[in-house]
């Protein structure tokens, strides 16, 4: 599919702000499942934009020093996605957990097995992970599908229950949240059993597929390292394996590594923050799934 994603952020201040410095992680990744054909970042008021690469993707940054009553960040990306069938080649039967016992696996992926700023690995996480594993067969992929299902069913999707700063241990108490919280919980359950897992931020093309969550703002899911070396994307919020409707933007240990927009400025607190995301399909319409 060829998808066009537009991410627009608008900060309005009651008093003009000055000395604003910002970092954004909004450019789609280039990897086996997608190609970022075009990317444009426009800032209002106009300023020069710089960028650097980090392990999870590309970061753009810029500063606005003069007084500005509002700051608008528009990121437009044109992406071709290739992954039509995520189930292809997936081992859903054979025992393949031994891979995670290997020292080499654990060392090479150490950052995706440990606790991170948002993610605590406590007894409650272990209990969830162990219980779900008991219901699954010998294959890791089967476990992951069941875990995604369990989280999808057990957490209530409620945008008012949490906010971007909510940590996993809080989510475990309220048992509700949004895609960020769903992803954090599943990452924790995987890590505690030794499956290297990372957080993915991105966009989702819903176009016609009813009842899917994650269209309005940046979506979030996770990727788990399979014994065959492939990072399998899993979306516990929608209980799905992401396919070519998903555009991955940035990866990291948890939300703190992929924050789409981050900034500091001198002035009064923002009067309003408005984020909107739209994803359109540019090539022929695909049939509804």
């Amino acid at each position: 599919m060829i998808l066009r994603a537009t991410h627009r952020t608008l900060y309005s201040y009651s008093m003009p702000s000055i000395e604003s410095q910002n970092e954004v992680r909004l450019m789609p990744l280039n990897d086996a499942s997608q190609t970022c054909i075009e990317f444009r970042l426009s800032i209002n008021p106009h300023c020069r934009v710089f960028s650097y690469d980090e392990p999870g993707g590309t970061v753009h940054y810029f500063g606005v020093r003069s007084a500005h009553p509002l700051l608008e960040i528009v990121a437009e990306a044109l992406v071709e996605t290739h992954l039509e069938n995520p189930f292809e080649g997936l081992n859903l039967l054979e025992h393949d957990w031994d891979f995670y016992e290997l020292k080499s696996t654990r060392q090479a992926n150490a950052e995706f097995l440990a606790e991170s700023p948002y993610i605590t690995l406590n007894d409650e996480v272990r209990e969830i992970a162990t219980q779900v594993r008991q219901t699954s067969n010998e294959s890791v992929a089967d476990f992951l599908l069941r875990l995604a299902r369990w989280i999808h069913v057990s957490l209530t999707y409620d945008p008012d229950a949490t906010h971007v700063h909510t940590k996993l241990h809080e989510v475990l108490v309220i048992r509700a949240g949004v895609c960020q919280d769903f992803a954090h919980l599943m990452i924790a359950c995987c890590r505690i059993l030794g499956i290297p897992s990372r957080y993915v931020s991105g966009y989702l093309f819903v176009g016609g597929a009813d009842g899917m969550r994650g269209e309005q703002a940046t979506h979030a899911w996770l990727e788990c390292l399979l014994p065959d070396g492939r990072w399998l994307a899993v979306d516990p919020t929608n209980d799905l394996l992401p396919n070519d409707r998903y555009v991955a933007v940035h990866t990291g240990r948890d939300y703190s590594d992929v924050t789409p927009t981050r900034g500091v400025y001198v002035g009064t607190p923002a009067k309003s923050l408005d984020v909107s995301v739209s994803v359109d399909r540019l090539d022929v319409c695909s049939p509804v799934i």
């Binding site: 060392q107 150490a110 950052e111 440990a114 590594d257």
Partner: peptide, 18 residues
Amino acid sequence: PRDLIVNAPNYRRSFIGA
């Protein structure tokens, strides 16, 4: 051991490659 480094509190992930 890699885990000691990448999970050290003072390891700056975003500085990889700089």
